[in-house]
C-alpha cells in the first residue's frame, strides 16, 4: 500500500479504507465522541512521547537516540494539537493526561520495540487517513490539523520500518495481540470488579461497627512491625 501524506484527498481508496470510512462516519457522530476520541488520541501520543524519550536514554546507538528524540518531539506536538481540538470540541477544560508508559523498550528489546512502533505508526497512519477523509468537508480546519499529524506519521512509519529487523515483526505482532487482549481484559473486567466491590462494600459495612473510631492525638509507641 503506497503511503500518501495527502491520502485524505486521494480519489482511489482501498476496500479496507472504505470499511474504515463507513465505521468512522458512524462513530464520529456519536454524542460526546469527538472530544473523547481526540483526547484519547492525545493520550496515546503523549504516552508514545514518553516511550520514545525513554528509548532515547537507553539505546546504545547515538544515531537512534537522535531519531527517538525527534520522534518524541513530534509526538508531544501531536498531543498538544489534539488536546487543543479536544478542548474545542468539549467546550471546557479536560482531565489531566495520564502519565505512565509501558517501558516497551525494556520489555521487548530494541529490535522488537522498533517493529512494534512500526506497526503502531502504520495503523495510526491508516486511521488518520480515514479521519482526514471524514473531516475534509465537514471541518476543514480540524482536517488540516490531522493532516499535519499524518505527514509525521508517514515519516515515523518509514524510519521505523527501515530500522526494524524483519524477523522481529512476528514477535511484535504477537506482543500486539497480547497488548490488545490485556486492554480488552481491562475494559471487560473492570466493570465486573467495580460491581463486585460495590456489593462487597455494602455487605461488609456492618463490620465498621466493630472497628470503633480512629484514634486522635499522640499515641504511645508500638513495636516496629518490620519483617520478612
Amino acid at each position: 500500500m503506497s503511503v500518501q501524506p495527502n491520502a485524505g484527498d486521494a480519489e482511489e481508496v482501498s476496500l479496507r479504507a472504505r470499511l474504515a470510512d463507513v465505521f468512522y462516519t458512524w462513530s464520529w457522530r456519536l454524542p460526546g465522541r469527538r472530544w473523547r476520541r481526540l483526547f484519547a488520541f492525545a493520550a496515546a501520543e503523549a504516552e508514545s512521547a514518553l516511550e520514545l524519550r525513554y528509548a532515547a536514554a537507553r539505546t546504545e546507538s547515538p544515531e537512534r537516540a537522535a531519531l527517538y528524540l525527534r520522534h518524541a518531539e513530534d509526538e508531544a506536538r501531536h498531543a498538544r494539537i489534539l488536546l487543543h481540538w479536544a478542548r474545542q470540541a468539549r467546550g471546557q477544560s479536560l482531565p489531566d493526561l495520564p502519565r505512565a508508559h509501558a517501558q516497551l523498550f525494556r520489555h521487548l528489546g530494541e529490535n522488537v520495540f522498533l517493529a512494534f512502533v512500526h506497526r503502531g505508526e502504520r495503523r495510526g497512519r491508516r486511521q488518520f487517513e480515514a479521519h482526514v477523509r471524514f473531516f475534509s468537508k465537514r471541518d476543514p480546519r480540524l482536517a488540516a490539523a490531522l493532516r499535519s499529524i499524518l505527514a509525521d506519521e508517514v515519516q515515523h512509519e518509514r524510519y521505523t520500518g527501515e530500522l526494524a529487523e524483519h524477523e522481529c515483526r512476528k514477535q511484535a505482532r504477537r506482543f500486539d495481540v497480547l497488548h490488545r487482549y490485556r486492554r480488552a481484559g481491562a475494559a471487560l473486567t473492570y466493570p465486573l470488579f467495580a460491581g463486585l466491590m460495590a456489593l462487597l462494600y455494602v455487605l461488609a459495612s456492618p463490620l465498621s461497627l466493630l472497628l470503633g473510631r480512629a484514634p486522635r492525638g499522640w499515641q504511645a509507641a508500638r513495636r516496629s512491625t518490620g519483617g520478612d
Partner: peptide, 29 residues
C-alpha cells in the same frame, strides 16, 4: 509494611461507609 497498609485501607474505607464506595473500589484495585 504492605500488610498493615492493606489493613488500614480496609479499615478506613469501612469507617467511611457509605461515602467511600469509589475509594474502596479504587484503593482495593
Amino acid at each position: 509494611n504492605p500488610y498493615r497498609k492493606l489493613e488500614r485501607v480496609m479499615v478506613s474505607a469501612l469507617r467511611g461507609f457509605p461515602r467511600g464506595t469509589a475509594f474502596f473500589r479504587r484503593a482495593l484495585r
